[in-house]
Design a protein around this nucleic acid. Structure first.
Lengths: 241, 241
DNA sequence: CGCGCGTTTGATCCTCCTCAACGCTGGTGG
DNA sequence: CCACCAGCGTTGAGGAGGATCAAACGCGCG
């Protein structure tokens, strides 16, 4: 059963000390004093696959950190066109905006757990703990850097380069979290990837096939990819292919 | 004569109290106490048209606020492909990144004046004045929102929609600064616009011509555009055209 | 005046989109 | 337990939108 919106999910008081994602969260590096303060305003929310955490246009009351699973951020155009803004996983953060409504929607790609902070609660903490605003700001700046990369990809790369960039990026994040590996798991569909890269799902599928035929990747299942020749993948991604 | 790099330009101590751009700057809303502190670490830099303020890859030592004129932010790919990330003007802010090197280059489109803050100087102020980090963070979040709009445009709009979006946006910013108007001045070339919108200069030029033929805009000179039918422009920009 | 840069317009080409068919897989119900 | 079905992925054929190549024009400037 899938519940809809912020009303959905299972709630419980956050247990920060046991949080496996802490080193990469909003609460990263927080002192013994600040951590409980943060914990007291945090709520764990559990999401079923397919469940929407918030919709574009909703009042932006909360910010979130992903603790487990995958979340997709996207925006919908009037005629149904969709642009996926990112795929989030452990440690990633979302919901922040300069406006009072969310500019994007967030939906769980897999069963997921997120840590929810009310923005008004957070505000009051910010004035007490400048360090927190620091961390907050730092994460926002990191997001901005990521968006610049994506902007270049969407504006100036062709289909095969976009897909190669996507795979290389996915591998990077995999490596950062787990031990170095050549295998990536993609919880999203080809349509999701297409809407992320500004392509159609057919074009994405063809790009995967082409990379496979050229021996650069191996497609174990549609969602499990092995990178066989990372150097060539990077070359293609950067336009040297 | 055009000087190159951060070495270029004419320097002088910032005169914050007389700064015409203050309401929209990093120093917006700063108290009487904080403003002099900020002023003491600020330097005015004057730029000739075409002069580069910083290059992608340079150590990110400063952040900047534009006080006058126009600045173009862009990134260059290995084979010369260029993606323009934005066109900045009075009050806009740049140079901020989560990394230690700039992710983009900044070049003056017109003669310009910017207000320069050393990041290390800023850091020390931040710990004294949390309000400053606040404002800083707020501007970064605003940038992020803008990037999401651009991402949708690059990922999911066709040529005419992109150009219409661009013009509508330019008009919006014009209106926000001056009195409501229907005329926009575009200091950048068609190639700049193309590299911003992920198109070629020819396609941009054709889109302008088509909008003119349909009576939606009037092209006084290549860089002076009149918006004759804003409603239709917005419709086209959002895909209802 | 002539030159160079930026813009416009035209002709052709090619990448990616669209439409369509088919296969695979996992879930559901008979 | 198996048949069926829906959703997702792959592959193919054809077409459209934008890129590329090319030429001419206008304008500012030396």
């Amino acid at each position: 059963m899938v519940s809809i919106g912020v009303q959905g999910g299972v709630y419980r008081q956050a247990a920060c000390l046991q949080c496996p994602a802490r080193p990469r969260m909003l609460c990263a590096g927080m002192t013994n004093e600040l951590l409980p303060a943060l914990g007291s305003i945090a709520t764990d929310v559990r999401l079923d696959k397919g469940e929407t955490l918030f919709y574009e246009g909703d009042d932006a009351k909360y910010v979130y950190n992903v603790k487990k699973g995958y979340v997709r951020l996207s925006r919908l155009g009037v005629d149904g066109r969709r642009q996926v803004m990112g795929f989030l996983t452990v440690g990633d953060y979302m919901g922040h905006t300069g406006k009072s409504q969310y500019a994007i929607s967030a939906e769980a790609l897999t069963d997921a757990e997120v840590c929810r902070f009310s923005r008004s609660d957070l505000e009051s903490l910010l004035s007490q703990y400048p360090q927190l605003e620091r961390q907050f700001h730092h994460m926002t700046a990191g997001l901005l850097d990521d968006m610049l990369d994506l902007l270049f990809t969407l504006g100036r790369k062709n289909a095969i380069e976009r897909v190669a960039s996507f795979l290389d990026n996915a591998l990077d994040r995999q490596i950062q979290s787990d031990e170095p590996a050549t295998q990536i798991w993609l919880p999203m569909t080809r349509a999701d990837i297409a809407d992320f890269l500004g392509l159609t799902l057919e074009t994405v599928s063809r790009a995967f096939s082409r990379l496979r035929k050229e021996g650069i990747i191996d497609i174990e299942h549609a969602h499990t990819i092995h990178i066989l020749q990372r150097a060539r993948l990077i070359d293609i991604a950067s336009g040297d292919g």
